[in-house]
Write a protein that binds this DNA or RNA. Structure first.
Lengths: 337, 337
DNA sequence: GTGAAAGCGCTAACAG
DNA sequence: CTGTTAGCGCTTTCAC
């Protein structure tokens, strides 16, 4: 068995109560006593049992991570996100409990599921903007941080990137290269970021005096195949396009394949910009110019927010989006004169 | 507050104990009573509090996942592994608690760390074969499943792929294409799989009557850069090579870059085989022939093992390796005559 | 300053 | 078959 608080109490000669208070930094304990107790605790290598602790005091040191949608895990960035969450969480002595899609299938009122697991707050990724749970979370007093889905409740907030600005910068990059006919392969509109990216696309065009053309936009679904299909459709219907912006690297990779198969040479015939900067973006040929979002950082930010939300009842989260960064590689080039 | 067992007891008119037993499927409860209690529980939407449960009964429904080494998360396959773990775990009503590298920095006796977190068993990935913790785990009675590191203890086992066979098959593939001079870029020897892959390389060569040549082997470190360096060194020192086998896709991508930069055309001048079949393997140009390992499946297998280890004190794990599958793409071709 | 006692929600003897 | 009694390891009133 592990060493418990009783062992520390016995060995130090103090009561369990005093040991608890000494170790938890209460100020109604003499410094001398505290020092002694801490010494004994260290000697015994005592670590409080978190299960017991969270059972009695409702202050819980566990974050729940919900990864919704079977495909979410396939997306490479989830790994970085988790990595960031863990690093930040363990800095604050928080644990990270992961739930898969199945966990929600129980139909359990979500927050209840968390409380039963001793989870103090949740980080949710992969949520669709049409999900009814969104309204619930907004009203709930259970700490929640959404990834890439806006929300504003007493205890709910979100973290994201400035997608509009990211896309807009990419358009500026293309315009600087002389492009005027720029297509856009977007993801599905159940993802909030896609609304943002579309808005950024329009805004970017407007900024450079270009007119938005509905026919230049294709709605994919984040799969490689939809990237292929999108590229094919866009270029066939609008052969005047000299550049295509794609809302994810994976779709961009599909578009790249399709365009190459159709006989286009990149970037000479057409320029291509992805989104994410996943590992493989540097590995395609030509290497993908893409809008990088640092998912690790986003993970840390999410953890930071949820921990504050859990610890401080008065915390008023302010949403600040992380910035993306355009990584220029070989898939974009000056428009052929 | 959530609904507790007391609420169910009160509402059903039975004692807390009876409710507990009825709900946990004990057979010393009349079916009539059980039915009534279950009905009430359902009506109240009662779910037992796992924190409390694991505090008293030492049977814990949480698996701890340790992802060691900062870089592990960067490796794409971790996401699939986690995905498999979660799916299998939630099927058995187990939760998954993730620990980062930092958690182990406390110097806490590992198993103690788990017990304090209410974790019944651990799955560990990224462990080096030189890690002293290995001996500890081997002797320990704490349920542990290692990923890709062999271990055999009363409560410790491991899951992995048949790396030898995988590499061997790739060599057969190359030999079938006429290759006789095959180089090998391995990972670092702190990873068990690299010993296996080296053994597989030797075995595969022998199988086809080829002689092992020390100079044909380069030890990288799983980074793309080491792949580049390895390709450069191997091909410069041994220009007679017509094929190179690489112990990871990322290193293979590096090798591909380097070889292309050096003016080689693949697969005409030289064939290249990767390992993993990560997403990007299909996206490089030429697309990478590679040895696919299904990390999702490995995750499920690991979860299955750890759960049995936790639940059944008499469970004797038998190690059975998962098979890899050679995915032939465009980076391998017949040797130029 | 410190300790005794109560109890978080649950399971597990032990009686009846 | 069912209920009473004791705790799991910890925090937290409330006395002293």
């Amino acid at each position: 068995m592990n060493v418990t608080i009783r062992d520390v109490a016995k060995k130090s000669g103090y009561s369990i109560t005093t040991v608890s208070r000494a170790l938890n930094g209460f100020d109604d304990v003499s410094e001398e006593t505290r020092a002694k107790i801490i010494a004994v605790a260290k000697e015994l290598n005592y670590q409080p049992n978190r299960v017991a602790r969270s059972l009695v005091s409702k202050t819980v040191n566990t974050i729940g991570l919900f990864v919704l949608g079977r495909s979410s895990f396939q997306q490479g960035f989830i790994a970085d996100l988790v990595s960031g969450l863990i690093d930040e969480a363990s800095t604050h002595d928080f644990d990270l409990l992961i739930f898969g899609t199945q966990s929600l299938k129980t139909g359990l009122p979500f927050t209840q599921l968390c409380r039963q697991r001793g989870v103090g707050g949740a980080v949710i990724t992969g949520l669709k903007i049409t999900d009814p749970i969104l309204a619930e979370l907004e009203a709930s007093d259970f700490p929640t941080v959404l990834i890439d889905v806006p929300i504003k409740g007493p205890k709910a907030t979100y973290v994201s990137f400035d997608n509009q600005e990211g896309i807009s910068q990419a358009i500026t990059h293309l315009c600087d290269l002389g492009h005027r006919k720029i297509g856009f392969i977007n993801g599905h509109m159940e993802a909030w970021v896609c609304h943002e990216r579309l808005a950024g696309y329009k805004k970017g065009l407007a900024k450079h005096g270009l007119v938005f053309n509905e026919a230049y936009v294709y709605n994919g679904d984040f799969t490689k195949e939809s990237g292929r299909a999108g590229a094919k459709e866009l270029i066939e219907k609008n052969p005047e396009l000299t550049a295509i912006l794609v809302a994810s690297d994976l779709m961009a990779a599909g578009a790249l394949e399709e365009l190459t198969a159709l006989g286009y040479t990149l970037p000479d015939d057409i320029s291509l910009v992805g989104f994410d900067d996943q590992t493989f973006a540097a590995l395609t040929s030509p290497a993908l110019t893409t809008i990088k979002q640092d998912e690790y950082l986003l993970g840390r930010l999410a953890a930071e927010n949820i921990i504050k939300l859990i610890n401080d009842p008065n915390y008023q989260p302010e949403v600040k989006s992380l910035t993306t960064r355009l990584v220029v590689r070989q898939s974009t080039g000056p428009v052929k004169s």
